[in-house]
Design a protein around this nucleic acid. Structure first.
Lengths: 153, 153
DNA sequence: TGCTGATTGAGCGATATGATCAATAGCGAC
DNA sequence: GTCGCTATTGATCATATCGCTCAATCAGCA
């Protein structure tokens, strides 16, 4: 997956203007040939530069307005087991392995605070997980965005 | 933004199969009328249930393979100022206000470890920010997904 | 029962798509 | 400078898709 060049970025910026903008319209607005835009877009998802369409759906729309992060400590001998169990929990939207004391850092969502408690219990009970610490997000200060990177170099 | 019902979810699941699947094809596969699917999709982005198309672009594709989280402590009198400054940093992909000692939790990306240092410096120098703690993500264990929520209730 | 809103199935014209083609431009290798 | 490779251009084509309309049906609810 090589980096997107300026042309790719300009195309994608146009699509941010209107997700359903026709290829011919994009081409016209950017002063490119239609075929070029078409080829670029084909390459983009062939290259795996794009996540699944469903990643555009906000958790709110799926009835999960409550967000939190969960720090997890693992039994180091059962890491794979733990990860597999976490992957089976729908509310776990993503999971990273940070440097430092925490073994895993999860992003989770829930229907409400009570539901968040249920989810965090489910996480705590995963095999190989020795300790968790949940931190409720009171507010989303900056919603997920890539526009800044798309605009710059 | 009311919750998506089962029909909406089934439509979106089909789109995960193939992002460019025509509306008529979705309708046929789900046993729905074309107009219904079209109306549902129209409602979806009218309701703001979908983020910008650019959110599908992986930071990797934008040349930012390095990810990290940054915990931020603020001068409580200059919160708005700090947030505005953070919003101006393209590498800050999102920002939450968690309950607890940390005032803000940022998701950032960078070109490489060196670049991450630059970004974290930029954050540290934002007005109103008194302290930061950056934690490098060694690995993405579960990439961002909503499929689980989409499949369930 | 009667109302309201969503869904259906069908049809319509306008538009977009995917594919092709020859010609050209850009770029690195030699 | 020249060769060869690749991307781009501008054009054309047939086909598929879109957005819209309509009357009829259906589901939920007062």
């Amino acid at each position: 997956m090589s980096d997107l060049d300026q042309t790719d970025r300009r195309i994608l910026r146009e699509l941010d203007t209107d997700a359903r903008m026709p290829v011919a319209m994009i081409a016209h607005r950017l002063g490119l040939a239609r075929g070029t835009v078409q080829a670029r877009l084909d390459k983009l998802d062939a290259a795996g530069a794009l996540r699944l369409p469903s990643t555009r759906i906000t958790p709110q729309a799926l009835g999960r307005p409550v967000a939190a992060s969960v720090q997890v400590e693992l039994d180091q001998h059962r890491i794979a087991e733990a990860i597999a169990a976490l992957a089976d929990i729908p509310e776990v939207l993503e999971c990273f392995a940070p440097a430092g004391d925490t073994d895993l850092l999860l992003r989770v969502v829930a229907r409400n605070p009570d539901d968040l408690y249920r989810v965090s219990e489910e996480i705590r009970l995963c095999p190989g997980i020795t300790r968790t610490s949940t931190s409720l997000f009171l507010r989303t200060v900056i919603p997920y965005r890539v526009t800044g990177l798309l605009a710059g170099a």
